[in-house]
Design a protein around this nucleic acid. Sequence first.
RNA 1: GCGCCCGUAGCUCAGUUGGAUAGAGCAGCGGACUUCUAAUCCGCAGGUCGGGGGUUCGAAUCCUCCCGGGCGCGCCA
Length: 661
Amino acid sequence: MQTTRARLAISLQRAFEEVTGSPVDLPRIEDPPRREMGDLACTAALQIAKEIGTNPRELGQKVADAVEAAGLTGVSEISIAGPGFINLRLDRAALLGALVEDLAGAPSPQDAKVLVEHTSINPNKAAHIGHLRNACMGDTLARIYRALGYPVEVHNYIDDTGVQVADVVIGFLDLRGDTPESVGELPEPFDYLCWDLYTEVSDRLTSDEDLQARRRDVLLALEHGDGVEAKMGQVVAERIVRRHIRTMARLGIRYDVLVKEGDILRLDLWSEAFERLKSSPQVRLVEDGKHAGCWVMHLTGIKGFENLEEADKVLVRSNGVATYVAKDIAYHFWKYGLLDRDFTYSPVEGVGDLGDPPFETSGRDGIEHDFGNADRAVTVIDVRQSYLQAVVAQAFRVTDHAAEGDTLTHFSYEMVALTPRTADQLGIPVDADDRDKSFVEMSGRRGYGVKADDLMDELGRRAAEEVGERNPGMDDAGRTQAGVEIAIAAVRYFLLKYARNTVIAFDMDDALSFEGETGPYIQYAAVRAAHIFDKLGSELEMDVNQVVSEALGGGQDPLGIRSPEVGTRLANDDGELWDLILALGRYEEAVQLAADTLEISALAKYAFHLAQQFNRFYHGYPILQATDDADRALRVLVAYAFQKRLADVLDVLGIPVPNRM
RNA sequence: GCGCCCGUAGCUCAGUUGGAUAGAGCAGCGGACUUCUAAUCCGCAGGUCGGGGGUUCGAAUCCUCCCGGGCGCGCCA
């Protein structure tokens, strides 16, 4: 479906070309600063007039005349203002008609398969608020692509053979004297236990050289899958990952497949990727210097790599072991189906009832599946990984896969820190410098952070309490359910509303607030709309939703939604009703913009704006008490469109709509 | 040192790839509830857009130089 804005842009482009006699870029259709000026506006005349050396106001007028002569549907008025702004007023009935038609529409299916990798938490401790930012953004990005019709596959990369797991392995084996079997039997919450154990081991590692040597050995054992250490690593990673899956499920976040680094090693994907890289002149074995004996990727003089003192990236160490980025390159080659070898999979067990459980890689012993073969791969990982992500993309370019390298996208975002106030509440020591900076960095190694499950528990508890006060008759189950749904909205919206490159200073009190620009505010608008329909329905003894839908489909119309008076009321509105309709008409472009710019905050803001617009409408346009049938019919129709559209946006943002709140 | 990002109301942040009088939320002050649920709405107050210079009809936005902050630059992951 084509948006009004897109249609107007094309019409104006034609008119400009007709008037100037030369090709012009697709003009941008903007929102005028104030509604009195018009519904939409275009400033292209100023730019184009400058280029061809003519008067912008005259050019604008000529273009406006040309557009009118061509007969532009959907526009009721076109005028020139100021130095040459082209202002447009829309045909309201036409726009509302198109809006209503779009409500029932599905996205046109796209061919290109999008693979989104997100979460990818080291499986050695409980998930914290920083991990949630990654997972909420990644999950929402996947939802955005689905809303646009793309087939989407969601990956969660599990680094089950890395140093962080090694640290916890040491904790269990050397500090606690546990066995893999006894660790398998430890009670939940296992990830909380590991959180503390990891902190303890990290602390000892800073001063204990024997333990540092031990860690190197454990790491090698994990990579080779040898001995009790590897067995322990497996138990730890498996238990932690299952906790992570459950934590994320509380926020409506799901995965298609968990790719384990251990399986990449067992399958030896790296050796196949390595063969390809060796064929590039940019990858070579260094004979002397500080990288003697290493295989490196040459990066000197390539844009984006000026930061290196010595612009070579080691892929294989002199001891023959591949580096982390090398394994990541192999994984990404596999994502695009460039490798011959493939994983097998098994369904993940032990994560409770998740509906469709994810698959996990299982070396060569599982079942086959058509995962991978992406046309576009997006990796959600924080900005500190920018350099390594660029190295991965470069690996595509030096092996003659520049096209894939260009579609490979690093979805980067900034860190989540804590406000000093919240750090104080958590008992985290805050030094004077941090207090001045207004935020305190979290540290998994030190155990500084807000655990995701704790946050969800507290939010759910507070929300349920609030719901109970507002709805005295509601039973426990209803209150709990509403609390859970409100908590999801609070967390997801809080983590999605900031631009990617904004450092979030997480403040417990702000995050727990349900007022202002928050997820619960938006939910409240949706619940209000639904409640009007419930009340009106019981008053009129009909299902208003169904009645409206039937009326729009050309069936019975007891409310008079199709009556001519409705059109008159719409044309004469000079307030929040038309504002709301205009806002509703921008749904598709809001989703598209988020996908094009990878800026989810824009879509979050749109959802908030819609809710805000509805709340204004709600106060100024009574429906149950409407004295005029045509007024009431129009308002019901607008509220209906709002309800549907807001539900669409909230679904894309992963935010549920409670029955009551 | 080199590279990337940031600096906008008291606080937290937007600002649609150069446009019309720079906007929200929170906090503050003042209003609107025997209600379509006040988790709401309306109003007031609050700004040398870090600073200087430049580009042009027009700059928070682009260029340049300062100041201040964050992150990255390993044969760790």
